[in-house]
């Protein structure tokens, strides 16, 4: 695994991402981030709080899907309560994530774990679109909470855990 990641890094070093990262690092915005000691941790705090909002919301939808709580509400009422929080949190995650890339472009863009995380994020977004717009609405249309709703709930939760794993391990990528 270490070798695989190392080779991934070596390959990233041959791409135009290097020029992009170096160009970003010379911008004024990047300099401001780099010279303010608390800038990166401050945006990490926004990032973590946004994950908390999204993860808590996903948990409550899952609890409802598995009939483990919130049963005074229908599945669609539960979704209406929590789904907007997930997408708003995602917006804050993307913005704070972009700011952190600007602050430390080489650490992020020339990092195999960063790109693995990005792929997982795209998969999670596509799955969530399917889950929120397809599965939940269909379950509401009278067919009840089926296997696809339960599978979707579990897979999305595992994906988010994997994304969090990637986020933490960006700091420990073999370089």
């Amino acid at each position: 695994m270490g070798d695989l990641l190392f080779n991934f890094t070596e390959w990233l070093r041959t791409t135009a991402l290097v020029d992009l990262a170096l160009w970003i690092s010379e911008t004024k915005a990047s300099e401001i981030m780099a010279t303010n000691f608390w800038a990166i941790p401050a945006f990490q705090v926004i990032h973590i709080l946004s994950i908390a909002a999204a993860f808590g919301s996903i948990l409550m939808i899952n609890v409802r899907v598995f009939n483990a709580g919130g049963t005074s509400q229908t599945l669609i009422e539960t979704a209406n309560r929590y789904v907007p929080w997930i997408w708003w949190a995602l917006l804050f995650l993307v913005i704070s994530g972009f700011v952190m890339i600007i602050g430390e472009p080489v650490r992020e863009l020339i990092n195999p774990i960063f790109w693995i995380k990005m792929v997982l994020v795209v998969v999670a977004i596509l799955l969530s679109l399917w889950f929120h717009n397809g599965v939940i609405r269909k379950a509401e249309a009278g067919q009840g909470v089926g296997g696809s709703a339960r599978a979707g709930a579990v897979i999305i939760t595992i994906l988010w855990c994997a994304i969090i794993f990637g986020g933490r391990w960006i700091a420990y990528a073999p370089a």
Binding site: I51, S57, M60, I164, F165, W169
Partner: peptide, 21 residues
């Protein structure tokens, strides 16, 4: 250390997410 940190993050976002609700 990084693995414990990761589990710590998953746990704490659950704590704070549910408390915030």
């Amino acid at each position: 250390f990084p693995t414990l940190e990761t589990i710590h993050v998953i746990a704490l976002v659950t704590v704070i997410g549910t408390i915030a609700i």
